[in-house]
Design a binder for these strands. Structure first.
Lengths: 232, 232
DNA sequence: GCCAGATACATTGTCAACAATCAATTGTAA
DNA sequence: TTACAATTGATTGTTGACAATGTATCTGGC
């Protein structure tokens, strides 16, 4: 019944939406995940128009879940929509990154650390250590995207100690917008090994359980991470 | 066709949703505004269940716009929903207020101020001054809710200089959660005049156009505002 | 009496048709 | 040619019906 199959794409027009994601989620969640991936991978550039009917046809589902997925993406800061007008992929400016997203992100992480110093057990620290190893592997293979995602996972793992839903929500939005920024501005050959090593320092600081000390290092790291990955 | 009229409510069960808001908005926006009002006024307490069918029946519209309104409210941090389960009114803890919402709010305002020092013209400052007068009126009448809303408007007016959509979004969410906090914890007789006077000091600082100076005062003000209104 | 499985009900998830709105185009007159 | 109003087509907004899921209730066996 639909012009495009749900799983196949033989047409000339490349189809970003093919349910790459899990089977167990609602259509809305799957749609949101797939569109998000198309955006943060750079496949859909800022300003691109997202038409409900077009996407629903490509995915082989109705417009309802697509509409709700677009609203979710709007809450994540990835798209912008206004009444009776097409939804478009959002853009991000450098000023917002430096003076808003990065400081807010810092607050989120310090908040999580402050109230969970007691929860940094062996298992937790070991997981972080594994992530650093993964970063080093990505660095050796010069896999920029892989390293950035592992970097985000590192910080996300710390935030996961926090159980409040809204904290996670702000984090999701801020990090997604930082991803938009990276896609636009990342250097071709940043010092990836440096990034991995910096996280090893952070991990060691965590073991001290001294919040002042951690806070200082963390502030330093997050403020400088951007310049390591992007043009000034 | 619907058990409850859209504009009337004669039943024994009080009906919080009656389209109190503007006529020109989409049903989704009106629904979101009305439910939001019911929450931040304290009519709907944290943990209250929001059932799509119930609300749509009370408002006399279909479930579609209600569903999307609930998603908007979730993005605003006012409700929490999980798949196939009722949406519930969100709660907020003191730690989140002190160590996350307040610092994030500070970042947002400083960001807006930093990049708009040149835009503080006479009209702009006059508007802020009028708001302070309104605060004083509310203080005299001991109208706590009115003063808090005027307080929020004051800060919102500064943020409005910023044109990025995502900034406004974070602000909306943070302030809504701060409202939840106020409803729960506000003292019966806080020093309302003090609040109004504090904003006069802020306004005077703005005229200096010295960001360092403004930043210091602002940080002081926002950190202490909470304790003026709430129990320790 | 109490627990496990089956059943019924309430609630959310999805769909396809219809309505409202907006942007572009076309036609018309100055 | 240009300005402007009507028309058309594309897109989002809304609706009611149906499907999927989760929760509470009932039933039977121990």
């Amino acid at each position: 019944m639909n012009p495009l199959s749900q799983k196949q794409n033989k047409g000339q027009n490349p189809n970003p939406f093919q349910f790459k994601s899990q089977e167990n989620l609602s259509l809305r969640q799957r749609a949101a995940a797939d569109i998000r991936l198309a955006i943060i991978s750079g496949e859909l550039k800022p300003g691109s128009k997202l038409k409900e009917l077009e996407i629903s046809a490509q995915m082989g589902i109705s417009r309802g879940p697509i509409r709700e997925a677009l609203r979710d993406l709007e809450a994540m800061g990835l798209v912008i929509s206004s009444p009776y007008r097409e939804t478009v992929v959002a853009d991000v400016q450098k000023e917002e990154v430096v003076d808003l997203l990065v400081p807010v992100r810092l607050q989120l992480e310090l908040y999580a650390i402050k109230y969970n110093l007691a929860n940094f057990d062996e298992t937790f620290l070991q997981t972080l250590n594994t992530m650093i190893s993964n970063m080093r592997l990505h660095a050796i293979k010069n896999n920029l995207f892989g390293l950035v995602e592992e970097d985000i996972r590192f910080h996300e793992h710390i935030l996961s100690l926090n159980d409040t839903a809204y904290t996670q929500q702000i984090w999701t939005g801020v990090v997604n917008r930082l991803r938009l920024h990276f896609i636009k501005n990342t250097q071709k050959f940043p010092n990836l090994t440096r990034i991995a090593n910096d996280h090893a320092i952070l991990l060691e600081a965590l073991t001290s359980k001294n919040f002042e000390h951690i806070s200082n290092l963390w502030t330093e790291h997050i403020s400088h991470e951007d310049s390591l990955l992007c043009f000034s």
